[in-house]
Amino acid sequence: MTKFLLAVHVIAAIVAIGPVTVAASMFPPAARKVLEAPDDPSALATTRLLHRICQVYAVAGVVVPVFGFATASDMGVLGDTWLIVSIVLTALAAVVLAVLVLPRQSAILEGAVQDGTVDRAATVRLAMFTGIFNLLWATVTVLMIIRPGSTTGA
């Protein structure tokens, strides 16, 4: 059962978190294209699509920690330090996405739709928060791979 849970956890992480990190990273430059070409409908459509991808896959990403907890419980490692740190970093990444990234994407899109303008400084701040989100996920991934103190030999 552990192998099944771990496989679902890893596949869910790849399928759900991967698109969020890529789409969120692509959003600020796409929004700046709206600023450069306000009359280009494809630029606005691209930013809308990237925001929608972030929203949908953020919700789908809930599966990752659910199966992560099930796997950790089955493996008996819920109290291990590397896992606790990973849980905290995962929660922090979720907060960054929900509080700092997605609302800023929405605000940038709203401004672009209402008056065709995009605040360049807002896209720079959004890129910073997106980078923090991505760095948190990269750190969790590394912790999941190296598992400090693990007895499995990894």
Rank of each mutant, 00 (worst) to 15 (best):
I132W: 02
V118S: 07
M128V: 04
V113K: 08
T123W: 11
A112V: 08
G111V: 06
F129P: 01
A127W: 00
I132G: 07
T117L: 15
T130E: 01
L135T: 06
L135D: 04
D115I: 01
A121R: 05
R120S: 15
R125D: 05
A138S: 13
V113F: 02
L126K: 08
F133Q: 11
G116V: 05
L126D: 06
D115T: 06
W137G: 10
A121W: 04
V113N: 05
T117V: 14
F129M: 06
W137S: 08
T130G: 09
A121E: 10
T123D: 07
W137D: 09
T141S: 15
A121T: 08
V113C: 02
R120T: 13
T117W: 12
A122L: 11
G116P: 14
L126N: 10
N134D: 09
T130Q: 02
T117I: 13
I132F: 05
T139S: 14
G111Y: 08
T123G: 10
T141Y: 14
T139P: 08
Q114R: 11
D115M: 04
G131K: 00
Q114A: 10
T141H: 14
G116T: 06
N134M: 06
W137L: 13
A112C: 12
D119S: 12
A122S: 14
F129H: 08
D119C: 12
A127P: 00
T139G: 12
D115V: 02
A112W: 05
A122T: 09
F129E: 02
G131I: 01
G131M: 01
F129N: 03
V140P: 05
N134F: 04
V118K: 07
A121Y: 01
T123C: 13
R125F: 03
G116A: 07
T141R: 14
G131S: 00
G116S: 10
Q114V: 03
T141F: 15
N134R: 07
A112Q: 10
F129S: 06
L136E: 15
G111D: 14
T139D: 11
F133R: 04
M128Q: 00
N134E: 07
W137M: 13
F129A: 09
L126S: 08
R125V: 03
G111C: 12
N134I: 06
A122Y: 11
Q114G: 07
G116Y: 06
V113W: 03
I132Q: 03
N134G: 09
G111Q: 13
L126R: 09
A112P: 14
T123L: 10
W137Y: 15
A138D: 05
R125M: 02
A127K: 00
L135S: 10
Q114D: 11
I132H: 02
A127Q: 00
L135K: 04
R120A: 15
V113M: 08
F129L: 01
V118D: 09
L136P: 13
T123V: 09
Q114S: 12
T117A: 15
M128G: 00
T130K: 01
A138M: 15
G111K: 09
I132A: 12
V118W: 10
R120N: 13
A112G: 15
V113R: 12
V124C: 00
A121L: 08
F129V: 01
R120D: 15
F129W: 12
R125Y: 02
V113L: 06
V124S: 06
T139Q: 10
A138I: 14
G111N: 13
L136H: 12
Q114E: 11
A121H: 02
A138Y: 12
L126P: 11
R120W: 10
F133Y: 14
A127S: 01
L136A: 14
A122V: 09
F133T: 04
G116F: 07
